[in-house]
């Protein structure tokens, strides 16, 4: 098992480096001079050039990338930073606070929202997916299918605003501004964020169940005298959930990214709003740090899901750790 994890981590390194390289390259080629940005409007060209030198902006691309990763100890004291590997990419143009500091402060808020959305999506999608599959071709199935189709087509930021219009403006059930201290205010953003995922997961659960229920081993289970309820929940569901779990795992990353848009709509203080504000104010260090941070978390989350997946499907698990007597087998909880 450990070997598998280590192998995956090693595979991750060049990918992460590639990501940082891309993000760095983007800022390098972006028009606009960071030195000029930091100085007052009327500065002379000499002053700008001097600042450039102090910031290390005259160095070649590769050196700057190196500084980006490992830090820069500029002449004088003004522009030192320890680099990405120490989570230090300097200070914001706007607030002059360390960029990662702001991110780390706000990240827990985003995590809370994402977590809530994840729970909501799982709790809604799996039961509805099962119901839809077991009642194929009935009105219930049609209703769920259409709802899911609409769910995957709805732009999240629009949904958020529509929910605000219905539930905040007209019905006054929920506030339109969200903040982590007030749980009631997080419900609408969580629902908005969860919508797309829920729809995708419901569709996945439904199609997976339909596929599994047609399998021969389900016929064997019925021929053994297993009652229909156990056929669905014990024999079929666990097999059907395997691809669903993969999808859920992949979606966690998307949730994180979706948070960026949704937070803006509800003015929720998470990394999404930081990023969007930074973009609007052209606060390059902040933008840079935010993008890199989210990309890194996204990659780590996907790695975590990969590893988790190995625990669930015995065929994959067996490849990596050899066979172990399973707890929680078929007889657990069986009515005897």
């Amino acid at each position: 098992m450990l070997k598998y994890i280590i192998r995956r981590l090693i595979h991750l390194v060049p990918v992460l480096l590639g990501v940082t390289l891309i993000v760095f390259t983007l800022t390098y080629i972006s028009p606009g001079n960071p030195a000029r940005m930091m100085l007052p409007q009327d500065s002379t060209d000499e002053q700008v050039a001097e600042l450039e030198k102090a910031m290390g902006l005259d160095e070649p691309f590769v050196m700057q990338y190196f500084h980006f990763l490992f830090g820069y100890d500029g002449p004088g004291d003004s522009f030192d930073y320890k680099g990405l590997w120490a989570l230090d990419l300097g200070r914001s143009y706007v607030s002059n606070r360390p960029v990662f500091g702001t991110i780390l402060e706000r990240f827990p808020n985003t995590m809370l929202l994402t977590f809530l959305a994840l729970v909501l999506s799982i709790v809604i999608s799996i039961p509805f997916g099962i119901i839809s599959a077991t009642r194929q071709y009935t009105k219930t199935d049609m209703a769920v299918t259409i709802a899911a189709l609409i769910g995957i087509s709805m732009p999240a930021f629009w949904l958020g605003m529509m929910l605000i219009w219905v539930f905040s403006v007209n019905l006054r059930w929920f506030p339109s501004l969200a903040n982590p201290a007030n749980l009631k205010s997080i419900i609408l953003p969580a629902l908005t964020l969860a919508a797309m995922n829920t729809a995708v997961q419901t569709r996945m659960t439904r199609s997976s169940m339909l596929e599994v229920v047609r399998q021969d081993y389900i016929r064997t289970a019925r021929a053994k005298g297993v009652d229909e309820r156990n056929v669905i929940y014990r024999h079929a569901l666990r097999n059907a959930l395997i691809p669903v779990v993969t999808v859920i795992g992949l979606q966690v990353g998307q949730l994180l990214v979706g948070a960026v848009l949704t937070e803006t709509v509800f003015s929720y203080p998470g990394i999404g709003t930081i990023m969007v504000d930074a973009i609007q104010r052209k606060d390059t260090p902040q933008i840079l740090a935010s993008v890199v941070f989210v990309a890194l978390v996204f990659a780590l989350v996907n790695l975590g899901v990969d590893i988790l997946y190995a625990f669930i499907d015995p065929r994959i698990k067996a490849q990596y750790i050899g066979v172990v007597r399973k707890k929680g087998g078929l007889l657990n909880g069986a009515k005897i």
Binding site: P14, V15, L16, G18, V19, I22, V23, L26, T27, I29, S30, P31, G253, Q254, L256, V257, V260, L261, M275, I279, I287, V291, V294, A295, F298, A299
Partner: peptide
């Protein structure tokens, strides 16, 4: 394929956002 992996590692909208933010 490694190049594709790297591009895929950055979530879509975020990446597009970064590119447009960088280039204007």
């Amino acid at each position: 394929m490694r190049g594709a992996d790297i591009l895929l590692a950055i979530p879509n909208i975020l990446f597009a956002l970064a590119i447009v933010a960088a280039l204007g």
